[in-house]
Simulated scan of single mutants.
Amino acid sequence: MPGYFDNTPERRSTNSIKWKAYDKDVLPLWVADMDFLSPPAVIEALRQRVEHGIFGYTYEPQELRDLIVARLKNLYNWEIKPEDIVFLPGVINGFNLACRMIARQHPNSQVIVQPPIYPPFLVAAEHNDLHRLDIPLVDTGSGYYEIDFEAFEQAITPQAKLFILCNPHNPVGRVFTRAELTRLAEICERHDVLICSDEIHCDLIFSGQQHIPVASLSPEIASRTITLMAPSKTYNIAGLEGSFAVISDPETRHAYEKARAGLTGHINLLGVTAAIAAYQDGQSWLSELLAYLESNRDFLASYIQQNLPGISMFSPEGTYLAWINCREARIPGNPQRFFLENARVAMNNGDDFGIGGQGFVRLNFGTSQAILRDALERMRTALSQLD
C-alpha cells in the first residue's frame, strides 16, 4: 500500500474533535486517534451496509463473537467462550461499569490506578462514589517506567477492591512483561482485589515486544479479571463506538451486566460492520500501519535527541503515544501551553495524567511523517527563541 499512510485527508470539516478543538493554524497531536484512512476492507464493508439504507436495531452477532474467540486464541493462545464477551460502546464505559459494580458490592471502597495515567482513570472512582488509590509507576531516570512491587503491595489497604490496569500503558508506552503481570496478579489475588485490564492498545505493539493479556496467564487469574479490548484504536474507527469486555467468571459477568442495565443499550450497527471487516480482512493493513508507526516513533526519538535540547523521551514499546519529558528545557511555565502558544502545536498536558505528569507532554505520532516533521520543526524554532 505505497503512500497509504502518507495520505492524510483534510479533517477539520468532518467535526473531528482532534482537528476542531484548536485554531486552524495549530497542528493537533493530542487526542488518541490517527489521521490515516481506515483499512480498505472496513471502508468497503461500511459502504455496502450504508447502501442497504436501513439502520434499525441490531442483534449482537454470533459472527463477531466467534471472530473474537478465534483472534484471542490465535494471538495469545487465550481460550475464551463466546458467552464470556460483553459488548460495550467504549473502554471508558467498560472500566466505569467495573467501578459501578464494585460500588454496589463494596460501598466506599478504593480503586487502584498507576499514574501517570490516562485521565479518565483518575476520575472513574469518583464518578462511582469510590475512592482512588494512587500507586505510581517509577521512572528509572531514562523515561523507562517500572512497577515498584513492594511499594505496590504495601500501599494496598483492606478497602482496595479494584485495580484498573492499563496495558499497554497510556501514556508511558510500556508493554508489561509476563513476569511483571504475573507478580501484579499474584499481589491482587493475595489481597482479594479484582483486576479490570484496559488493553485497548493491545494490537499496537512494536518490534521485540509481545502483548500478554493478564487474564491469559492462568484460569485462576482469568476468574478475577475483566479484560477490555476494542478494534477502535487499532483500525482508526473509534467514532463507531464498538468495544468489548471478556469476563470468564459467570458471577462477575452477571454482576457486571446488572451494573450496566439501563445504561448501555444496543451496540452500534456500523461499529459491528467495521469490527467484523477489520478482524476478518485487516491484518495486512495493520502490518503496514505498525511499520509506519514504528518509523514515525524512531524519527521522533531521533529528532528530539538531535534538535530539542533539554527534552527527552523513552521510545514507547506500544501505542502511538509518546510521553515527552520537558523538565530540563528551560521552558517557562507549562510546556503544553508553551508549545501551543509559541509553536502552534497542540499536545496533551502532562499535569492531566496525575502524579508524575508535571513537566511532560503527550504527543500522538499517529499521523503522516510530513505533519510530524512540521510540528517538530515548529517546536525546535520555539525552543531556539528562549533566552
Rank of each mutant, 00 (worst) to 15 (best):
F365W: 04
E63S: 07
V91T: 04
W285Y: 14
Q306F: 05
M101F: 09
I212A: 01
T319S: 08
T225L: 08
I54F: 12
D198H: 04
R174C: 03
I276H: 02
A277Q: 12
N307W: 01
M34G: 13
L204T: 03
R71Q: 14
R12V: 06
S295D: 12
P316Y: 00
S216H: 04
P2N: 07
D249N: 14
L29T: 01
Y279L: 13
G56C: 11
I221A: 15
S38W: 07
C99K: 09
L263A: 15
E186C: 07
E257Q: 10
L286W: 05
Q159C: 03
F95K: 01
G271A: 09
F121R: 03
G3C: 10
A45E: 11
N7V: 05
L386P: 12
I324R: 09
T182K: 09
A230W: 08
A291K: 02
F339H: 10
E189N: 10
P89M: 01
G3A: 12
R190D: 14
L386R: 02
G262H: 13
I92R: 05
P89W: 03
G282V: 00
L293I: 09
E317F: 00
F36P: 10
I304Y: 10
G366N: 08
P316M: 03
L363Y: 04
Y235W: 13
I80S: 04
A259D: 04
M313R: 02
L181Q: 13
F121C: 07
K258N: 14
S109G: 13
I187F: 09
G239K: 14
E189V: 03
I17R: 15
G3D: 14
L290M: 11
L64D: 05
Y145L: 01
T182L: 09
Y292W: 05
S16M: 11
G242V: 04
S302F: 01
I43S: 15
A291R: 02
L290G: 08
Y279F: 13
D35G: 15
Q336A: 14
I147P: 15
L184E: 12
A322S: 04
N348Q: 11
R253T: 06
M101Y: 11
R362W: 00
F55N: 12
Q62I: 05
